[in-house]
Design a protein around this nucleic acid. Structure first.
Lengths: 237, 237
DNA sequence: AAATCGTAACTGGTTAACCAATTATAACAA
DNA sequence: TTGTTATAATTGGTTAACCAGTTACGATTT
């Protein structure tokens, strides 16, 4: 039994082990940026795991910009230096899954910025897209229906108008987690949704009038209610 | 020739096409959250692409939290509703690769927050880790060597001390892009690196003394020089 | 000795067959 | 009719063989 616990690793732990082994290999062989890693086949043999596991680990490191695979040629160490590489791999290995609180905290941070940037950079098309999502939200709320999705789509429209692709990507990444947790904890009741209509409209107007300060402030107001609501009724996880 | 241009799609475009076809299918079949998607085999036959392409597309949508694959069971629509799903897929399809300007803009936003949060939440271990990276940076600069990597590792240590896993992940994601661009444009010259020592130390002290306002301000000062330098000498991409 | 060419080994990527677990089905029993 | 069980089909995941492009290297020619 004990033996089984020790030897049975889920695929996540296998991947972490492979990643740390790749790091050790790079250090041991003194591989410089641009150098070629041993082939996937050799690594799978050396680490005694399937080639699929190796590819998975390489893809993760490629996602974080530490490796670069080139077809029919090899996998190469990225141009960021061994010190940064070691530090980053260490951080990646110790990364934990995001909790709801960190999601909300990050969302507010990003949204205050997107509101400001959208006010500065929005085009007429952006305004049109925002108006559409705002109308969909309003109709849903007035019909007494749940409108969490339409709410988030309005915010994503602002993110798109901010013309910052990095923040836009990050907003997309956190949105599903926000939606599921909101619905789970019933964060948005009808009372809150009614207020939301006016708040959304205020944000929209500020962006339309290209007033970054006001846009940020209105977004802040919007979240202050939400924030407060979250931490009063659902302070845990 | 023209025909070849029209029919030859790189794998990225193939994936985008599959993703939009999956979206159409969900809409056409009125699949609700939690419903099961057709099997990978059926999809690959229906869309006339390999099963591998299908898996790749599903994995991307799974990354953004829109689908969920369960072994030996099926692929399921996430619990976020069809409206949000449609909107998000649209956004994902139109996402472009991040440019350097958006990376820097996002980095500053995140770092002002991590400095503040780290001042509030840092442990003794966090301080120790920060001090180590700070020392490595100082030594490198005093030896007249390039210290971009050590610079970034100090900032990542702050991110870790902020105890916000989402922001920490985002910092890790943008760091390689920052490093390569910095080295490409030689953003950090020796003069700037010398100033950096004092600035880093100021940030460290503020976090150590648990002064969030000061930590944020010192981080802002740190970036104002960098920012200015960026936009003066390298305003273009 | 140097340059060129061709061959053979090696690369990451792709594919089709296979696997174990789940699920649907239908036969059977109560 | 209802509940149970055995079985067959289906699922996502895994694997090993295969592919096309790249690279290394040595024979050959000049």
């Amino acid at each position: 039994m004990k033996l089984e616990i020790l030897t049975t690793n889920d695929s996540e732990n296998v991947q972490k082990k492979i990643i740390s082994q790749i790091r050790d290999l790079i250090n041991y062989k003194n591989l410089e940026p641009g150098d070629k890693l041993p082939s996937e086949r050799m690594l799978s043999e050396k680490f005694e795991v399937s080639r699929g596991n190796i590819r998975e680990a390489i893809q993760k490191l490629e996602f974080y910009g530490l490796l670069k695979s080139i077809p029919q040629s090899g996998t190469f160490v990225a141009n960021i230096g061994v010190i940064a590489l070691n530090g980053m791999i260490e951080d990646i290995l110790s990364l934990e899954d995001p909790d709801f609180k960190s999601l909300v905290e990050t969302r507010i941070l990003l949204e205050l910025k997107t509101a400001r940037l959208a006010a500065l950079r929005r085009t007429e098309d952006d305004l049109k897209a925002m108006a559409e999502t705002l109308e969909a939200y309003t109709n849903k709320v007035k019909a007494g229906e749940d409108a969490v999705q339409e709410d988030l789509l309005f915010h994503l429209a602002i993110a798109k108008a901010s013309k910052n692709t990095t923040i836009n990507t990050f907003m997309l990444m956190i949105t599903p987690g926000i939606i599921t947790n909101f619905e789970k904890y019933h964060v948005c009741d009808k009372n809150l949704a009614q207020k939301g209509i006016q708040e959304h409209y205020d944000i929209y107007e500020a962006i339309k009038n290209q007033d970054p300060q006001l846009a940020k402030q209105k977004m802040k107001d919007h979240f202050s209610v939400l924030y407060q609501y979250c931490y009063n009724s659902n302070s845990e996880k």
